[in-house]
């Protein structure tokens, strides 16, 4: 399982990317989707997920929708227009970070960097 500190740093990007692909999702669904996509390698804890979702909503990047499911309400999150713009920015930022990390970890790997 990946380190929690590593996941925490890219959690917002993970959420935004998932919502870009899935239109709308609820909290538990996000945790399961991440688990499924990474074959259980990355497990998002509730302790990190919900504060991140609430923060993104407060920043105007996510909007919510309440739906009645059986005898309870379910809160769905989806991207706002600002959120859609932010996804590409965050992804580019993460991509650049990963490339920089690769340069440090594998100094011999240079082809993708055009060096």
């Amino acid at each position: 399982m990946s380190s929690n500190a590593l996941i925490k740093g890219s959690l917002q990007t993970i959420i935004l990317k998932l919502l870009e692909e899935n239109e709308k999702m609820y909290g538990y669904e996000i945790t399961q989707k991440v688990k499924e996509l990474t074959a259980g390698e990355i497990k998002i804890t509730e302790g990190a997920l919900y504060p991140a979702l609430h923060k993104l909503e407060a920043e105007g990047l996510l909007t919510t929708e309440i739906q009645q499911v059986d005898n309870r309400v379910r809160k769905y999150y989806s991207l706002t227009k600002d959120g859609q713009k932010e996804v590409s920015f965050k992804l580019a930022e993460l991509q650049s970070f990963v490339e920089s990390m690769q340069r440090i970890i594998n100094p011999g790997l240079k082809p993708e960097l055009g060096i």
């Binding site: 504060p51 609430h54 923060k55 909503e57 105007g60």
Partner: peptide
Amino acid sequence: YCETLEKELFKNINKSIRR
């Protein structure tokens, strides 16, 4: 944990309404 989450939520909701 719920108490901490709730405090965070209060801050975020306040920010969201103001925004």
